[in-house]
């Protein structure tokens, strides 16, 4: 699929010497929802800010729909809408007037019919003449999205779009993002809520300490790196895992009432039948079996911890 955004060898070192990004390469496909995951300070917001022209990169190039964002910022920026992490909007303006301001700022001629539709889609129609200071936090966040959409961007950046938003509003926003994708908008979101990426993203990128650790189809990533767990509920609790079971690397959970077996679902031999036979041979009774797959959050934590461990190993 054709790229709409191409980030090549982008690095950023701030004046303080802090290296926020380290030679990041990233291709975003037209029309996809891409989730960028990473802990606080990983470089997510810096990367978005560089693409949008708010932060100047130290090195690297960015192409937005084929336009160099640094040499030809006007063409590049006109295609991008940004919803920043913080609610930053003139509190004295009305909802409708701040949207008209954003549309004008991005060089688009007035189109009240389009803006009215955005207001309706975001459930802001009843609040169109209200001052922003009078709105709730959730409504203000919708206004930020409405402003970003007011100039009909081809690429929409959502930096932590549902941070501090209640569950109901979060679900509404997910629906709205899905609808935007159906209309052809490419969406790049950063989030702390792994379930958000799991729910919506087509592809996932994991960034930590300024380095892009991986970019993968969400489904492939979960399949490739996903582990499954089997919890065995014991009839009689035990104080330690018998040595005869060492080859399965079991852990004892729930104060000795459960044995946990972590296995690779993609492996040819999962080891489950042999484990169950061994339990029977040892006379260990169990009353229930429960299997679950690892979430994107588990995968993310594993990746970041693994990378940190390997870095520490390299230093040592």
């Amino acid at each position: 699929m054709q790229s709409i955004l191409s980030v090549s060898q982008v690095s950023k070192t701030y004046g303080s010497g802090h290296k926020a990004l380290d030679h990041v390469d990233l291709e975003i496909r037209r029309g996809e929802i891409f989730a960028l995951l990473g802990p606080n300070g990983a470089g997510k917001t810096t990367l978005i800010s560089i693409i949008c022209g708010i932060v100047t990169p130290s090195t690297g190039t960015i192409l937005v729909d084929g336009h160099d964002a640094i040499r030809h910022p006007r063409e590049a920026r006109s295609r991008i809408g940004l919803v920043p992490q913080e609610i930053a909007v003139d509190m004295f303006s009305t909802v409708a007037s701040t949207m008209r301001f954003s549309r004008g700022l991005f060089g688009k001629k007035p189109d009240q019919a389009y803006l009215d539709q955005v207001l309706k889609d975001l459930s802001l129609w009843d609040k169109r003449d209200a001052k922003i200071m009078e709105l709730s936090g959730g409504m203000k966040r919708r206004v930020m999205i409405a402003k970003a959409l007011s100039h009909q961007p081809e690429i929409l950046f959502l930096d932590e779009p549902t941070a501090g938003v209640d569950v109901s509003l979060r679900r509404d926003m997910w629906k709205m993002i899905g609808k935007l994708r159906e209309q052809g908008t490419t969406i790049i979101l950063t989030t702390h809520y792994i379930e958000e990426a799991e729910e919506m993203a087509d592809r996932v990128g994991v960034i930590n300490k300024g380095q892009l650790l991986l970019v993968e189809e969400k489904a492939v990533l979960m399949k490739k790196l996903g582990k499954r767990e089997m919890d065995i509920a014991l009839v009689e609790p035990m104080t330690a895992v018998p040595v005869e079971l060492n080859e399965w690397h079991l852990s004892l959970e729930d104060e000795g009432h459960r044995l946990r077996y972590v296995f690779d679902a993609q492996a040819e031999r999962t080891g489950i039948p042999s484990l169950l036979r061994k339990l029977a041979d040892l006379g260990i009774g169990f009353k229930d079996l429960d299997t679950s797959k690892s979430s994107l959050e588990d995968i993310f934590v594993d990746l970041v911890e693994h990378k940190e461990a390997s870095n520490e190993g390299a230093v040592a």
Binding site: G53, I54, R74, E75, S78, I80, A88, S102
Partner: peptide, 14 residues
């Protein structure tokens, strides 16, 4: 001061 400068900086305006 309010942070709304992000919109000016990210807009296609010279």
């Amino acid at each position: 001061f309010t942070g709304t400068v992000f919109e000016l900086l990210s807009a296609p305006i010279s």
